[in-house]
Design a protein around this nucleic acid. Structure first.
Lengths: 149, 149
DNA sequence: TTATTTTAAGACAAAATAGTCTTAAATAAA
DNA sequence: TTTATTTAAGACTATTTTGTCTTAAAATAA
């Protein structure tokens, strides 16, 4: 699996929030609409909040929203916040000493491939994806029922 | 992580065997040279044997070797035998209904990226990598002590 | 103030992955 | 035949990831 489940949940929730305005959205709503365990999602979003990508507010009409930083962020920022940077820094075979001077058999092509992965995640901000989403009605749930409006 | 640990161990053992002639190599030797748990490696290699990519022989001077099929195989064949094909067939967000008619935000670029990954793993057979390895002395262990000879 | 709604935090459980250990079966050599 | 060497098989443990549940803390409104 390229991305952990936690990471995928974090990405989908970020996409959900990107379609909303600045109001706080309850995690309960997100978890129900995207069919993700509420408590599990809460933990993941706490990470993103700690990272400054989201802002939360307690109490009635509280919830979570993307911070300004989060709106400018790309999917790569979310992935690194949750799964860490290893995918984009390490040898494909996990060999500590692998490098251009002493490469594993995959070294050269892995450099290109992992750049392709990071480009894929980096090329558009959440803000921009939200715009495209409103045009293209991108799927972000298994049921495909999310309304980008 | 792109590949599971089991998968990486299987790849490194395959590369080790690719450098050898047709004789049986003991799993003990591979596990010591590549610093992989012996019993764990045994299980992984049993999978590859069951898949017809390797051949094993019990008893003194027994061991394991690549089958003719295994010599012609690519790293992609090893990866699919151990981690399964999901990485190359599924949506990046794991959404069941994602497809060109109803895509997730990553759908289009993921098609290209996952092809890049599979090309990376598919472009050379173990046989060919072994030739290159003998020229380039590719690293396949953390210590980097493997002798392609 | 009191009750309600929400996130925060952390204990706990379940499932998947990774790793260890013991015994069985096959083979070869003494 | 007996012993040693090797893979096969499976029970078992440890760790990581995923998921659940309870309580605390903050905020709002009655």
């Amino acid at each position: 699996m390229l991305l952990s489940k936690s990471c995928v949940y974090g990405l989908r929730a970020s996409l959900y929030l990107s379609a909303k305005q600045d109001e706080y959205i309850s995690i309960r709503e997100i978890s129900e609409k995207l069919d993700i365990s509420f408590h599990f999602l809460t933990k993941i979003l706490q990470q993103l909040t700690a990272d400054g990508l989201m802002e939360s507010y307690k109490g009635p009409n509280g919830g979570i929203r993307l911070s300004p930083k989060g709106r400018k962020a790309t999917l790569l920022d979310i992935v690194i916040a949750i799964d860490g940077p290893e995918l984009f820094t390490q040898c494909a075979l996990g060999l500590p000493g692998c490098g251009s001077e002493d490469p594993c058999p995959l070294h050269e092509s892995w450099l290109g491939t992992r750049t392709a992965i990071s480009n894929m995640l980096e090329k558009t901000s959440l803000e921009e994806i939200a715009k495209e989403g409103k045009q293209n009605r991108f799927r972000i749930s298994a049921g495909g029922t999310f309304n980008w409006s």
